[in-house]
Each structure stands twice: as C-alpha cells, then as structure tokens.
C-alpha cells in the first residue's frame, strides 16, 4: 500500500530532527496537522517503532573487580549509581553501559566472578532495559567469548521509540578497531533508514583520534565515521577515557561519559595518563552517570550529568571501614 504523506511535511519533521529531542517536541505538533497519521506510520515503518519522547541513562567503565589506590571503594560508585537511578522520579527506559563493565583479571575464573557481580549489581536497576557493549577489559584478551557468555553479542542494533541504536564493538579484536566486517554490517543495518533518521551509536573507545598516545582512539574510526557521514542525525556515546568530552565531526556529535571507578586527567594539560588520586573527602568526585533527554525546544539531545550521592560515605566511620577492607593489589587500567 502506498503511504500518503506530504514530502514537505516529512522534510520539515526530519530536517529539524537533529536528535531524539526534536522528536520530543516536533512530533506532537505533527499529530495535529493534516496527513499526520501517514507521517507517523511512515516513520514507524522506517524506524521500527513510532517516535515518542523518552529518556535513557548512560553508565560507563564500572570496572567491577578493580580495587586499588585510585578507588579503594571498588563497586561502591556503581552501586550508588544504581540506587540513584532507582530513586529518579522519571525512570529511564534504557540503561546503556559503554564498556569496561569488568576490570580484567589474570584468571578466567576470577573474571567470570566479576561478570557475575556486574550482572548482580546492574540487575538491581528496576524497570529499564540494560544495553551494553564491551570494553577492552571485558573482551580484549579472549575475543569477547566471556562477554558473549554473560552479556550477549558484542555488536547489535535495535530500535526504541523511533530511534535506531547501534552497539559497536571496537575492542574484541584486541586492537582498537571495529573491523571491515562489522562496518559492512553497520552499513547494511543502516541502509533501510532515511538520511535524517535519528541514530545513536554507543561504543567503548572514541571513534576519532582523541589522544592516540594514551590509547584513546580507534584505528579504523575514520571508516566508521565515513559510513555514518551520510546520516544527518547521529549521536555517538562512548566511555574508555573516564572523563567527559565532546567532539563534533560534520553533524555527528560524540560524547564521552565519566566512569564509575576513577577519573583520568585532562589530556590537554596532563603529562601522563595516570588516574586521578582518590579523595577521601569526596570519594565520587569526577565520577557519575548521565541522563539523556529530549530537549524542550526540540533542537538537540539534552545531556544531564548526574552526581552520585556521597553523604552516606564521606567522612563517616562507614567510609573508614570500607577503606580498611579495600585491597591494593589491583593494577590501573
């Protein structure tokens, strides 16, 4: 059946739909216009689901199993993040974790325990779908076998409320690369969408040369960006660098998230990639989670950095006890 829809109306919607935020505000106005049903149906067919407002969380670099000087509290920040999400009034529909769920371990048995603990803690998040990609700590040594065993595929795509999400694996080759096969898969996956479709890519490493000498790059990131370039409405969310960062290439916006273990310094000023020292008075300083919302003005995604609650830890006897139970045998990332 031929879909009735006015091309100018479609362009008006998608042309301003620079992100899911645009769908948030523009879409309701469309429902009042003539021929709206056709447009809704067309977008629904193209995106797999009708556009609708929603929010989701990005967590990153939980490094379950790490317990060392930069963060002697181990999983406490991760657990605090889960509690914070569960306290939110408007609950997110998705929770995305952009890699390094676990800290690597010398023995596979120990690494498996860390995956189990990640699943146990993340399983406490109520009412949201968990979507994850691996970091090199999760999948760099075994090609992603253990990650797949515990968490599922290392790359995949799905649609949620009219937005197309792509989970991209740039770690399990061992090298910082996506690989020709996965890029071909991504191109084929995107082929059914118009160039204006809202797309969110989530991955672990930056897809551009943020700081190659700190291992903050993806060797074939340019090939990925070239494949994404025809699409006007792409947002990339990633982790790995344990700090916030924004970078734009063409119309594609790329955001790095803070970690839930320890922060790295500013690469523009720091002489070396050393974790920021632990601050007992502010144990979750520079850590945190991110909430992604539709913007009220319909122009862009709104990224809201959410601080973790520290009152129950900072300066208390409980904090001292936790520190005593920390061990210093883990190494840095």
């Amino acid at each position: 059946m031929e879909t009735k829809f006015d091309r100018r109306s479609f362009l008006r919607v998608t042309g301003t739909a620079l992100s899911i935020g645009a769908l948030y505000s523009v879409f309701p106005a469309l429902t009042k216009s003539a021929g709206a049903e056709g447009i809704v149906r067309t977008l629904a067919e193209l995106n797999g689901e009708a556009p609708a407002p929603f929010s989701f969380m990005q967590l990153s670099d939980t490094h379950v199993g790490f317990n060392g000087p930069p963060d002697p509290l181990g999983t406490k920040a991760f657990e605090s993040a889960v509690a914070t999400i569960n306290r939110l009034k408007n609950r997110p529909e998705l929770v995305i974790v952009t890699g390094d769920l676990t800290h690597d371990a010398d023995s596979p048995d120990e690494h498996a325990k860390r995956f189990k603990l990640f699943k146990e803690i993340s399983g406490r998040i109520g009412g949201a779908q968990l979507k994850v990609v691996p970091g090199e700590n999760d999948a760099g040594l075994d090609g992603g076998d253990m990650f797949r065993e515990f968490m599922g595929p290392t790359h995949y795509s799905f649609d949620h409320r009219g937005v197309h999400f792509i989970a991209l694996d740039n770690v399990s080759a061992g090298r910082p690369e996506v690989g020709a096969a996965q890029i071909a898969w991504m191109k084929a996956d995107l082929a059914r969408f118009p160039k204006t479709a809202p797309i969110i890519v989530f991955t672990h490493r930056p897809l551009f040369d943020l700081k190659p000498e700190w291992d903050w790059s993806t060797s074939d990131g340019d090939d990925v960006m070239n494949a994404l370039a025809p699409y006007e409405n792409v947002t990339v969310l990633y982790g790995h660098i344990h700090r916030e960062n924004f970078h734009q290439a063409g119309t594609t916006k790329m955001y790095a998230a803070r970690s839930l273990i320890f922060a790295f310094p500013d690469p523009a000023t720091a002489p070396a990639k050393k974790p920021m020292p632990f601050d007992k008075a502010h144990p979750f300083k520079d850590l945190g989670i991110r909430r992604v919302n539709g913007d009220a003005n319909g122009n862009d995604l709104r990224l809201e950095e959410v601080a973790l609650a520290t009152a129950e830890f900072s300066g208390t006897v409980g904090m001292d006890q936790m520190l005593k139970h920390g061990n210093n045998d883990a190494k840095d990332e």
């Binding site: 910082p176 000498e213 060797s219």
Partner: peptide
C-alpha cells in the same frame, strides 16, 4: 619525544606499556 604504545590489549598492565 614520541610515545610508542602497545595498542593490542595484553592484560591488566596494558595501559602503562609504552
């Protein structure tokens, strides 16, 4: 001065291998 890094993940101390 140029840093050369190991960019093939090799274990828990990989981040400092340069």
């Amino acid at each position: 001065d140029f840093a050369v890094i190991c960019d093939h993940y090799c274990g828990t101390g990989h981040g400092g291998m340069q």
